[in-house]
Simulated assay, not measured.
Amino acid sequence: MKISHYFEFEDHVTGGIRESVAHQRKMLDRLDLEYTTEPTLEADVFHCNLMGPRSVWYARRARKRGIPVVAHTHVTAEDFGDSFRFTNALAKPLRPYLERAYGLADALVCPSEYNRGLIEGYVDGSTPTQVISNGVDREKLEGFESLREEYLERYDLEPPVVFLVGHVIKRKGLETFVETARQLPDVDFAWFGPIDRSLKGRETKQLIDSAPENCTFTGFIDDIRGAYAAGDIFFFPTHEENEGIALLEAMTAGKAVVVRDIDTFSWLENGEDCLKVAAGSSTAADANSDSNAAVATDGGPTSFVDAIESLRDPDVRDRLGSNARERSEGFSLETIAQAYERLYAEVV
């Protein structure tokens, strides 16, 4: 079996989608499946990770030739907004485009049950969907502990450090992150990841520039292990997420996790492997949210400040982090690889 494993705009797209593709190819190598990263119809399966115009062109022709098409549903209109400049304007027309594009597939791969629920609304049951996690590359994080002192010193951070990993964008809870840091001036907050100011809107840049002194934006770092080495509390107040590879990585590193209580994270257990906070707004726009107007859920913290305050206790951090590490084992590439082997066999 030969697979055309195509990632349109591969040289330009970064972040979670790029990581997911890297994970998939590592799993294909592990399974010893033959594949090419070029788009071609000289294959048994055409698998596209981003439904751009070239992918759509190939998908249409693959279907005419009887070659099964598998498409990943990394992109939705819901998570496209509040990312970079102009994405809000593009989010509305993006949905009908994706409805047509995803409708060309013989099978859709969704990274989470939440994403699957959204996508089934796009294709209205016309295309089979299957949930396969993006997974976590445990090997990539090996030895992260040895970098702790180096990265704490590099960014002048004092433990326990509240941190986040990924592109600095509003949708991931930028305002909440900054405002929570402002309310906890004696705690260091660090967001590890590219800022790309030229791609950011005015509000995003204002939030970054007006952040308090205890809130550090590191920009791109050359070794992502350094983020998980320096950080102690992974704070992920995102408003919309298809899964969250950085979350899985933080759990694998045994970090205590604080998340916004949104449908994407329904698989996490509040008080067991994370702390959840139900904020006053679940919209995708930070500007419309009240970062700490939270409602208690299942006896959990009533605000993000409350949650982080409780994690000053190292015993609480260790318990939640240990449970998170154990829970993350089900997302290892070794565990997920077999799902791809079954998927390709089914569509062929």
Rank of each mutant, 00 (worst) to 15 (best):
E42C: 08
T238D: 03
H5D: 15
L28D: 09
D29A: 01
F177R: 01
N214K: 12
T218E: 02
L31K: 15
E309L: 13
L98S: 00
T302D: 10
T36N: 08
E158Y: 06
V348I: 11
Y151N: 04
V70W: 04
A246D: 05
R116I: 01
S303M: 09
V45I: 15
Y151Q: 02
V131D: 05
T302L: 02
F86R: 14
L28H: 13
T252L: 10
I245L: 14
A246M: 10
S146I: 01
A71V: 00
V295G: 06
R95S: 13
F144N: 11
G244R: 07
I245S: 04
E213P: 11
L247D: 04
D232Y: 12
R202I: 09
V348S: 04
N49S: 05
R342D: 05
D209S: 11
G52T: 00
Y6D: 10
S133P: 07
L174A: 00
A307S: 04
D232T: 13
F236W: 13
S332T: 14
D261S: 09
S210G: 15
K200S: 07
V45F: 00
G299D: 11
L174P: 00
G321L: 11
L247P: 02
D290S: 13
D137K: 00
F265M: 03
I132H: 12
I208Q: 11
L118Q: 07
H23K: 10
K140I: 04
D11T: 08
A89W: 12
K64D: 08
E334V: 14
I67D: 11
L268N: 09
G135A: 15
G166L: 07
R138W: 06
L157V: 00
H5T: 05
S291F: 15
V123Y: 02
F9K: 11
G173A: 08
S198L: 14
H23V: 11
E120T: 01
T180Y: 05
L157C: 01
H239F: 05
P301F: 12
T302W: 06
P39R: 08
T302K: 13
S4L: 06
D286S: 06
P212G: 04
V178A: 11
S332F: 02
A246N: 05
R18S: 10
L343K: 07
S126E: 11
H12V: 11
P159D: 02
F331M: 11
P212L: 14
N288F: 14
F80I: 05
E139A: 12
L28P: 06
R65C: 04
I3T: 01
T87F: 13
F220K: 05
Q183G: 09
N288W: 11
A230E: 09
F331A: 10
S281P: 03
D318C: 06
Y340C: 06
E145V: 10
L164D: 03
V70P: 12
T129G: 01
S133Y: 07
D298R: 15
L275P: 07
S83H: 04
S332K: 14
H239V: 08
Y97I: 13
D124R: 08
V13A: 03
D188T: 12
V69T: 02
T238P: 05
V258C: 15
A246S: 13
E145Q: 14
R61G: 12
H12I: 15
K255P: 03
W57V: 07
P159C: 06
P301A: 04
F189C: 01
A91R: 15
E341G: 08
E99K: 14
Q338A: 08
